[in-house]
């Protein structure tokens, strides 16, 4: 009888002590998790506040950059007109010259092609009979 009572009391005490120990442990862990989650929430709000600047700023940059890009051809067109206007030009001759290639006249290589000339067969030049 006494043994049964003691075992019953031990059983109840074990249940209460175990529950208290484990619940205290879980409580401390959950408190730490809650602190970390609170810090995460603050970081998320900071990121949101930073990201709110991106949309309007990029839109502004895009719009202004588009205007600049559209105006640049006009600017360099005007600059080219100024350069063309201030560059001195040679006076045109009274009698216009015939059209000439800009690279000049080209030396004929027909003699060299048939063995005469500078890089062809030049033996005839040193042969006294040929002269």
């Amino acid at each position: 009888m006494t043994l049964l009572v003691i075992l019953s009391v031990v059983d109840i005490l074990l249940l209460i002590a175990g529950l208290a120990f484990y619940l205290f442990w879980v409580g401390s862990l959950l408190t730490r998790v809650a602190g970390n989650l609170e810090e995460c929430a603050e970081l998320v709000w900071k990121i949101v506040s930073h990201a709110e600047l991106i949309g309007p700023g990029v839109e502004h940059i895009n719009q202004t950059g588009g205007v600049v890009a559209g105006a640049l051809p006009l600017l360099y067109g005007m600059a080219e007109g100024i350069v063309a206007g201030v560059t001195p030009r040679e006076p045109e001759p009274a009698v216009p010259l015939p059209a000439m290639p800009a690279s000049g006249t080209r030396r004929s290589r027909l003699h060299e092609a048939v063995g005469f000339g500078r890089y062809g067969n030049t033996a005839w030049q040193s042969d006294p009979d040929q002269n």
């Binding site: 600047l53 991106i54 700023g57 990029v58 502004h60 940059i61 202004t64 950059g65 600049v68």
Partner: peptide, 13 residues
């Protein structure tokens, strides 16, 4: 660094 975006927009302006 996104606080620099409005400054860049002012620079482009």
């Amino acid at each position: 660094s996104t606080v620099l975006i409005p400054q860049v927009a002012d620079g482009v302006e």
